[in-house]
């Protein structure tokens, strides 16, 4: 199957800064594709290059099997997007905004159809109000309506949950699932919050400093073989010596004398017994099989930990 988005060796330099560094990935029809990375990892820059907002320094982008740079118009007709904040013309009404962007996307929609579009995002009763009077959540929904007004095959949502309250975040999650499951659209969604992506994405990519760290299905990231055990013990030095005699692999030694071992979940009781037999007191033993830790472990030196756990 030919990918819907096929990016190869994409590079973007802003002066000396390499924002995107030799990035290649593919998005397939029907995917909910998660773009994950810290702020400044290159997610937005990449998505903006896919939307032709930013011109690549080198590399190729193909959408729907066509080269973006030479088929921009025909390709972008099939794409809808919300990039960061859903900014629209504040001095115009919702329906006027919708009408403008429908026409710009090459769709001639009747006002009846436009109202229907607004109904889908629950804004029909405010169709004639100026956007300036809208709340953040309403703007977000209108932004989605604008992105979908020309019935695109591919929907790109850059940080769609930014600035939303928990209810808004949940609504957005449901909307993305609706787009994918009911309307059979391919969705690319970026976030710096792993748990958002984790819940909706079928495939994902993790970026750090403009480089691809890993790409694959979410199921790939949950392989038991990749399970980690975090261990805090009374005497880490002794524990390390003892563990060296076992087949269990010590992967890392972290702050607060926490040891990280790589072993399947079913071997955790055995590990527990072994340490007790060696008279090592266990203060904490934690089996971790979450993308979040994986994500943290992959991205640079676990900086800004708070960002990921908020």
């Amino acid at each position: 199957m030919e990918p819907l988005i096929d990016v190869k060796h994409l590079v973007k330099n802003f002066g000396d800064l390499v924002a995107v560094d030799d990035l290649s990935f593919s998005v397939f029809q029907g995917d909910v594709y998660g773009f994950l990375g810290q702020n400044g990892a290159g997610k937005s820059t990449t998505l903006r290059m896919i939307l032709s907002l930013i011109l690549p320094s080198s590399g190729t982008i193909r959408l729907f099997g066509q080269e973006l740079s030479t088929n921009r118009k025909s390709v972008l007709k099939r794409v809808g997007a919300v990039i960061e904040r859903p900014d629209l013309y504040k001095y115009l009404s919702a329906i006027e905004n919708l009408s403008i962007f429908a026409r710009m996307s090459g769709r001639k929609a009747t006002s009846r159809q436009l109202i229907e579009q607004l109904e889908m995002v629950g804004l029909a009763d405010r169709a004639k109000s100026k956007v300036a009077t809208y709340s953040q959540g309403m703007k977000q929904r209108l932004g989605i309506a604008v992105a979908l007004v020309h019935n695109p095959d591919l929907v790109i949502l850059d940080e769609p949950t930014n600035g939303l309250d928990p209810q808004g975040i949940a609504d957005m999650r449901n909307l993305i699932l609706h787009l994918s499951k009911d309307l059979h659209k391919t969705v690319v969604v970026s976030s710096h919050l792993l748990n958002e992506i984790e819940q909706i994405a079928s495939r994902m990519i993790i970026l750090d400093k403009g480089k691809k760290m890993v790409e694959g299905t979410v199921a790939d990231f949950f392989q038991p073989a990749k399970n980690k055990v975090h261990l805090v013990v009374s005497d880490p030095q002794k524990a390390k010596l003892m563990l060296a005699q076992t087949p269990w692999l010590l992967e890392a030694e972290q702050l607060k004398q926490e040891l990280v071992l790589s072993l399947p979940p079913d071997q955790v009781p055995a590990l527990n017994r072994f340490l007790v037999q060696q008279e090592i007191d266990i203060l904490s033993i934690r089996s971790v099989n979450s993308l979040e830790d994986y994500f943290l472990s992959l991205t640079s030196e676990n900086q800004h930990v708070a960002t990921f756990t908020n």
Binding site: L53, R72, K73, V75, V79, D87
Partner: peptide, 14 residues
């Protein structure tokens, strides 16, 4: 300034 430029440029218009 309004933020509408990025939406405008993603439209299939040169």
């Amino acid at each position: 300034n309004m933020g509408t430029l990025r939406l405008l440029i993603t439209k299939p218009v040169s």
